[in-house]
């Protein structure tokens, strides 16, 4: 068990290394002069020189790499070109709304998608099953922001049930927090629910074919307990795996959702950075999101131990 945990933790190191190397090389190996591209169409030669200096592009590439890795190890993600503030500071300011939105979305997704997928698998071919499949193919097809605007149009503008845009911290009151986060959560959840319910359905369906399900039925066990005790627990590994992999999808969705609902989170930071060509911010956020993704998936890998006693080392 400890061997497995240790091995999984160690295995994340090369992946993080690859991410870091990738991000590092992306700027250096991009065609043309990245400093000029970042500076934009109306930049003067001094602007470009200043950016090149700021990004450390004048040094030999190995020196650049080690300086960069060194500062990265100290938690230094560089300085924003536009605001001249450290990227870490900018990230810290925007962290809370994104974390709130991600957590509400994750919870909402799991509460909705897992029972829905299980039901669809159990009654495969039924009306419920068809609805789940239809919902999931629809969820994969509608762009997040279009969905967001549709929800705003009907629920906020027409029915006036919920605020159109904005964000209230949970520390400013639970009521306003939920009123503001409800729509973004629903918007962001749809594609995630599509993904998770589909995977739940597929893996529960597969488990239901297994011999031990037949054994449980041969014992005279009720269908509900067959599903809960035998099927779902065995289907858990692929389900949590897809939730982990789906985090990447979620992060992409956060960027868009935050801009639709005007939420001052990391997604908005990305958007602003894109518009202002503030590359250090983009780079910092890529590293942050990737590492978070790797960590979450590490935790999920470790959770396999809990779901499946066969995993040892």
């Amino acid at each position: 068990m400890t061997g497995y945990i240790f091995k999984r933790i160690l295995a994340t190191v090369p992946v993080m290394g690859v991410v870091a190397l990738f991000v590092f090389l992306m700027l250096r190996l991009s065609p043309g002069d990245p400093a000029a591209v970042i500076a934009g169409d109306y930049a003067t030669a001094e602007d470009i020189a200043r950016i090149r200096e700021q990004l450390g592009l004048n040094e030999p590439i190995f020196v650049q790499f080690f300086t960069w890795i060194g500062s990265l190890a100290q938690g230094d993600l560089g300085i924003s070109i536009f605001t001249n503030l450290p990227v870490t500071t900018l990230i810290a300011q925007r962290l809370e709304p994104t974390i709130s939105l991600t957590i509400t979305t994750l919870l909402f997704t799991i509460i909705v998608a897992v029972p829905l997928g299980t039901l669809a698998a159990w009654k495969s071919g039924s009306l419920v099953d068809r609805f789940v499949m239809l919902f999931s193919v629809g969820g994969f097809s509608i762009p997040v922001f279009v969905l967001g605007y549709i929800l705003i149009y009907f629920l906020s503008m027409e029915l006036r049930w919920l605020p159109v845009q904005g964000y209230k911290s949970i520390f400013d009151g639970v009521g306003p927090f939920f009123r503001h986060i409800a729509l973004p959560t629903m918007t962001l959840s749809v594609i995630f629910i599509a993904l998770v319910s589909r995977m739940t359905r597929a893996s529960v369906m597969e488990v239901l074919q297994e011999d031990y399900i037949r054994t449980a039925r041969a014992k005279g066990q009720s269908e509900f307990k067959v599903l809960l005790r035998h099927a779902l627990r065995n289907a858990a590994v692929p389900i949590v795996t897809v939730i982990g992999l789906g985090i990447a999808l979620l992060i992409g969705g956060v960027v868009v959702t935050e801009s639709v609902y005007n939420i001052p989170g990391l997604g908005r930071l990305v958007l602003d950075a894109v518009l202002k060509r503030d590359y250090p911010i983009i780079q910092g956020l890529i590293l942050l999101f990737s590492f978070v993704y790797i960590l979450i998936n590490l935790l999920i890998d470790l959770s396999y131990c809990f779901f499946d006693p066969r995993i040892r080392y």
Binding site: D211, Y212, K219, G220
Partner: peptide
């Protein structure tokens, strides 16, 4: 009746038992 008055055992005892229980 299943289990109480009639019971069944299967070919493949590995797959017939729930692996996580």
């Amino acid at each position: 009746l299943r289990g109480e008055r009639m019971a069944m055992i299967f070919q493949e005892p590995m797959t017939a038992l729930n692996p996580v229980m």
